[in-house]
Amino acid sequence: MAEEKTGGLVFHPLDQFIVKPLFGDGAVSWYTPTNVTLWLGIALLCIVALFAIGSRGRAIVPTRVQSLGELAYGFIYKMVEDVCGKDGVKYFPYIMTLFVFILFSNYLALIPMSYSPTSMIAITAILGFGVFFAVTILGFVLNGPAFLGLFWMKDAPAILRPIIAVIEVISYFVRPVSHSIRLAGNIMAGHAVLKVFAGFAALTLVSPVAIVGIVAIYGLEILVCGIQAYVFTILTCVYLKDALHPAH
């Protein structure tokens, strides 16, 4: 890592992603409560507060918190219904779970000194590959071998069909990789850039520029956090649609 003793300028833009045990020091084993655990837990608490406690009143005329929850519910419900069709609605709780988890993890990570779980490739890979395996298994369970029709374009000219099938298969297996790296990459890059600008802010000469830069990147990150949660969710819906209706 670049470390200039002379200017007192210290760049450790990736240190914010280090996993540390919450209590005491020591090795990080699989069950150790760490800063990852803490911020996942905070996300869980926020989700419980917004969706379970916020809707506790079951008010016909909703409170502010309840109407926020209803907004998110309606947004994702409509997305699932529009993309997957009526028979996709029974998978709505899973998609909603993914969406609120990514959304809250992204936005909580924007709090200074917080930890961003969605920037960790291990976490987004579990999400991405989870969606991939779930959708693939679901496709075979629902459609049997007919699920393979997904790769066989019936409208294409007969000569092109095998070539298209090969491309389709490759693109199908690339899906989980792009799905997970897109999310982790966006969040990690944003946070690293913020940290680099913050490092420059220590230099008196460029600190105004650096601080304006931090504000600008932070604004951009606010957009990116929402958009990435949305993109991950709608792609999940699109993949689910392929499993439900594999025929092109």
Binding site: V19, V28, S29, W30, Y31, T32, P33, T34, V36, T37, L40, G41, A43, L44, I47, V48, F51, A52, P93, Y94, M96, T97, V100, F101, P117, M120, A122, I123, I126, L127
Partner: peptide
């Protein structure tokens, strides 16, 4: 560690939701 706590969190969120 991340995967374990992610799964715990996801399952908790799923049940709450």
């Amino acid at each position: 560690n991340q995967i374990f706590w992610l799964l715990v969190t996801l399952i908790a969120i799923y049940f709450v939701m």
